[in-house]
Design a protein around this nucleic acid. Structure first.
Lengths: 222, 222
DNA sequence: TCAGTGACTAAGCGCTTGCTTAGATTACTG
DNA sequence: CAGTAATCTAAGCAAGCGCTTAGTCACTGA
């Protein structure tokens, strides 16, 4: 992982007290992303953090504790960013665009973390899993509530609410899989692209001999 | 894995000669999907297939060989299905809709396999990886070529070609992560939903005081 | 001055891993 | 029915695993 990545991720767990703990979180994230949680070894993690294998256990009780902490911080971060992005918008369409842009650009910006959060859930024991699932559900609800509001107001075209929610989330989640700064431009441009695509998806037809046009509600949010 | 799944997957590797080999492919797929390639043990795989651990090595040279074979068959299958779905369509928009429906419904129908194909690529050594990557690129090209054709003909709205390709693929790939028959309906309905969302994304604006309407090219493909 | 504390390391324990070996069993052939 | 090849199992090896133990070291407060 590059210097720049290290600085970006440092902000995520700036609230973690010890410098060694923070170094271990970054080392563990790298190791989990590179080989998967099960294949990553505590020896590898400790080496990336510049410590002996035993030093890990001064700061964390187990390898699983490291994963759980990374997952918790990651899920909390994306939920917070989505909330902040939506808070000043005034219409469902605007809030959906803001959510999509924030969610997708987060997954590009923290692609390494995004891969781990999305695909190592199965490694968590039931109680940890439940905690993370609650955060995921809260994030999903931010989006679903706005889609429902826009649908009921007649401003947005939403035939399958749950399916549309999943589609929008998929754009973001999967960004973490393929994104690299080389291939994807900057994270914000991914967010803008996805927000634009989503607004097109939701454009309400205006009658005109079977031809559709986006209504003002959507055109404004562009 | 259920009886029904077993039958569905049996078709995928019907061409594999030995019955034991086919049972091992299914057992390995289950094990890889449940815990990840690295965490899955050859003892677990052999037990699922009703054999002793050593019997695996009569049919496959290594655990990695099992993964590589599963990946190859899976990637070839989705490429074939996409090609077949597109072949009788006459416009770019129709072929894009057909591709999207086939790609997404495949990932829902073979969700277990889809998860493995998408996320265990890193476990492959360079030569195996290159083989799989070629299949992925061929699939991607099926879609990209049609988007480019529709864009150049002026029928489709495509601002960011590579970004749009990735977005459409993301809808399918991520379906494998969340889909279950309980939550997602049948695979074909996922495909139809995604095809519809994609056609909306690509609708070309028709001038009219800043208001957009899909042109006939897209409306026809609906 | 020195007991106490927190961060760390060297060494290694008990266990599991992918895979091999040696031999048994089975199905088929001349 | 002997011979052969294919398929399987019981047993186990070398290596690597997560984590622990015992002890070192720098620093703190009385």
């Amino acid at each position: 992982m590059e210097e720049e990545d290290a600085r970006r991720y440092a902000e995520l767990w700036a609230h973690v007290e010890s410098e060694s703990s923070r170094r271990l979180l970054l080392a563990a994230l790298d190791a989990f992303a590179a080989r998967g949680f099960e294949a990553a070894t505590t020896r590898d993690i400790s080496r990336r953090a510049g410590m002996s294998p035993a030093a890990v256990y001064v700061h964390y009780r187990s390898k699983l504790d490291l994963l759980a902490e990374i997952m918790r911080i990651g899920h909390q971060s994306v939920l917070d960013e989505a909330r902040v992005a939506m808070q000043d918008r005034t219409t469902p369409a605007q809030r959906i665009a803001a959510f999509t842009a924030a969610f997708s650009s987060w997954h590009a910006r923290f692609a390494t973390l995004g891969q781990v959060t999305a695909h190592e859930l199965r490694a968590l024991p039931p109680d940890r899993f439940a905690e993370i699932l609650a955060l995921r559900r809260a994030t999903e609800r931010l989006l679903a509530d706005e889609l429902r509001a826009g649908q009921q107001a007649g401003d947005l075209h939403v035939e399958d609410l749950q399916g549309t929610v999943r589609a929008i989330l998929s754009l973001g989640v999967d960004s973490a899989r393929w994104y690299t700064p080389q291939r994807g431009g900057n994270p914000e441009s991914i967010g803008r692209l996805h927000a634009d695509l989503v607004l097109r998806m939701l454009a309400q037809p205006v009658d005109g001999a079977g031809v559709a046009a986006p209504r003002a509600a959507v055109a404004d949010a562009r």
